[in-house]
Design a binder for these strands. Structure first.
Lengths: 138, 138
DNA sequence: CAGGATCCGATCCGATACTG
DNA sequence: CAGTATCGGATCGGATCCTG
């Protein structure tokens, strides 16, 4: 029990964060899955092997360019394999690696937290926006 | 066991993702904590109440402007409370709300996954970059 | 101390056109 | 089908100056 005037402080969430060098490595993940499309690709590939066009059709709104960039970066990071079959027309299959699959647990946790709080967040935003009309924040 | 020529497909990771409307709500979280500084602020505030300058000193490299914007958005979403003491000079304290604290679990999971895979990712990148010299990806 | 306002370069991303 | 290449608008974020 903390008594008296001492400041209540919980132990660090992670070793050393907040430094510009990202020692805790969180930024590294966020730079990969924090972008606009990576999570969607991971979610889709979590259901099985997919071809390029299949991915594009499944992920509403993604452009050809962004899908290419996204799967390439996921491949570079070892989260996705890219298999080219020398047929005509060409056929390319994408699949999660074991590391990619381990990431789906995190994505699931993300989705669960979202589902559990997005209503409270929306409500908070409504109140804040009503209390701060014409704010540049948002 | 799946036998024969049927495609192996695992059940959906989340209900309905991949649509432009983000029904699974993942984007909502990512739009908040996926930016450059929010996670760092949450990590710092997970340790206790902080004043504006304390946050800025703790988070290496963050500009005044971005700290302001970041805490304002966190406040708007109901993850952080902002308490102004009408003293001179002014004193403003930031603190995680219960919802903000619940988010730290997710951040912890993020940090753990990062720590467990960042070496494998770095290695994968080295190999990919060596195999794809002069690529525009990255 | 805790910001608000402004300027401006960097990056992201969509649209479009072209290719093996 | 599965890309690559290029252009341009929008957004992000840093630097700087100013204020109660």
């Amino acid at each position: 029990m903390s008594v008296g005037h001492t400041t209540v402080t919980t132990p660090p969430l992670v070793e050393s964060c907040g430094d510009g060098e990202d020692r805790c490595g969180i930024r590294e993940v966020l730079d990969r899955i924090g972008d606009k499309w990576s999570v969607m690709v991971v979610v889709e590939l979590a259901q099985g092997v997919r071809r390029f066009r299949e991915l594009q059709r499944a992920i509403n709104g993604i452009s050809q360019r962004m899908l290419t960039l996204t799967v390439r970066r996921l491949e570079r990071d070892g989260l996705v394999t890219r298999t080219v079959y020398p047929t005509v027309p060409p056929q390319v299959e994408y699949e999660l690696t074991p590391m990619g699959h381990s990431l789906t647990h995190l994505v699931k946790a993300l989705a669960d937290w979202s589902a559990g709080h997005h209503e409270a967040i929306a409500e908070s935003r409504r109140r804040w926006d009503a209390a701060n009309p014409g704010s540049h924040v948002r």
